[in-house]
Design a protein around this nucleic acid. Structure first.
Lengths: 152, 152
DNA sequence: TTTAGTGCAAAAATTTTGCACATAG
DNA sequence: CTATGTGCAAAATTTTTGCACTAAA
């Protein structure tokens, strides 16, 4: 990730009385550098390579803050419900998650507004938001004939 | 739940070399009797009232089987990712989950086919399925002005 | 009967908390 | 400087496993 982006994030953190520390920078670099969703453990292992002294607790605390600030989003995979991903700066979006390699592709334009309105009207529900995720297998994994490997 | 439904489920279990035990019956009664999604713990507590000797392990094992057989489905709530709900017999459907009381309303007719096809075409992804959940507050909770209570 | 299921206790894995020390701004 | 952040160790949860005993079909 370019310094620019991390600098921007540092600003967002500061604006919310959080500080940019080397640990948080390392976590951000790992998340940003991956096109997959990563569990706290997976992030921990990767960050450790560059920053062996970091504690797993710091990963948890950092993820909580980043999620609160909407800088990362959570993916609800079938097995692993707590997996994180950098939020790309294109507003409201959803994910398409590869079951083989975990790659995540962003989706925009889900136009569920009409459905939402209908549901609200019919049930009296006040809908705040929705979770939409597609799963399947990405081009690359299909080509490699991989339908398995779960090393996340 | 009527005996009929449980008898039907017993048949499905038997067909898959599983047996219908009083423990499983109790778990099914609890899940069927709730319009909310319930965590293993919550199910455990409720089943215990009628069946004090049951072990939490049995709840986990039962849920795994029922989920495998597609008799219950899992709800991915914001906080609690492992929550279960009886699957109603109307085929493919999604959920609308109340953040206050946990009530779940089934949704049919999500017509995401067009979107799915477009995504497949554009990315080469082979889409197996999707997860769609709406969240917000149900009519009853809105009327009572409840925006909080998380007793799940 | 025979195969599958149960409870218990223990282990493993995940997540949270308290606290003294360290450090970003 | 001072508020916030960090690591550690320990606690609290949650989930899984091994094993002897029980019970459904």
């Amino acid at each position: 990730m370019k310094t620019d982006a991390l600098t921007g994030i540092a600003g967002i953190l500061r604006k919310n009385t959080y500080k940019m520390t080397p640990q948080r920078r390392a976590v951000l670099e790992v998340i940003t550098g991956s096109h997959d969703h990563l569990t706290p453990q997976a992030i921990y292992r990767r960050v450790q390579k560059k920053y062996p002294a970091i504690g797993l607790v710091t990963i948890y605390r950092t993820l909580e803050i980043l999620a609160d600030l909407n800088l990362v989003c959570r993916v609800h995979a079938e097995d692993n419900c707590r997996s994180y991903l950098m939020r790309r700066p294109n507003g409201h979006h959803h994910h398409m998650v590869c079951k083989s390699c975990g790659e995540v592709i962003d989706i925009t334009g889900c136009n569920l507004d009409e459905l939402e309105q209908r549901l609200s009207r019919e049930t009296g529900f006040k809908i705040d938001g929705h979770l939409l995720e597609f799963n399947g297998h990405c081009r690359a994994c299909l080509d490699r004939g991989e339908n398995d490997n779960e090393q996340r």
